[in-house]
């Protein structure tokens, strides 16, 4: 990985973290799903995994002191985006398909935390937690769908332009 890519990934993590903190007063309303999908579309699989690992470590450190009950499900859930994007989504840039994916992801993200929260709080029954979590999942799913549907394409084009331009500049200066 070249230095410029490393810089871009670092800045992407900073953007992810900052927007999340800015929107922390609105539970589950954030641009994280949109931004991660945009970054995953632009970066390679390996770069996406590095980005998500950095972001989750920073977020968990700040919000919960690297509490494994948050860190592990969060890491697993966000990893699902690059994994799905490079497999079942076939690297699509169709915003409608990606928006529907973001909608489903809103629910999957919530479900990922359930077994860990049950272990942490010593809860034995699954369904009451599942029901209690539904409002938050609906908010996250709808936010993800709307933001990806309307903002994904312009952000993707912008990011792609930045990456291509940087590559061209780098190639020209090398020559």
């Amino acid at each position: 990985m070249d230095t410029k890519k490393m810089m871009m990934i670092s800045l992407s993590i900073a953007i992810l973290f900052t927007q999340e903190q800015l929107l922390v007063f609105l539970p589950n309303v954030q641009l994280t799903v949109l931004l991660i999908i945009v970054f995953v579309s632009v970066y390679s699989f390996k770069e996406s995994i590095i980005l998500i690992t950095g972001y989750v470590l920073l977020d968990s450190l700040y919000m919960g002191g690297l509490n494994p009950f948050y860190l592990v499900p969060m890491m697993l859930a966000w990893y699902l985006i690059p994994i799905s994007y490079h497999t079942i989504m076939r690297r699509t840039t169709n915003e409608v398909k990606l928006a529907l994916f973001a909608f489903v992801f809103g629910f999957v993200y919530g479900w990922m935390f359930i077994p860990f929260r049950m272990m942490q709080l010593g809860i034995n029954e699954l369904w009451p937690y599942l029901v209690a979590d539904i409002p938050f999942e609906i908010i996250m799913a709808t936010t993800g769908l709307l933001t990806v549907l309307w903002i994904y394409k312009p952000l993707y084009n912008l990011m792609n332009e930045v990456v291509i331009t940087k590559n061209l500049v780098a190639t020209k200066s090398y020559k």
Binding site: V96, A99, P135, I138, L146
Partner: peptide, 22 residues
């Protein structure tokens, strides 16, 4: 047009879910 329909459907889903829960 497709995007508008999906957005409206999503907002209706959000509103009706919260009405049902309340």
């Amino acid at each position: 047009m497709k995007k508008v329909i999906i957005s409206v459907a999503a907002l209706v889903f959000l509103a009706s879910s919260f009405l049902a829960l309340s």
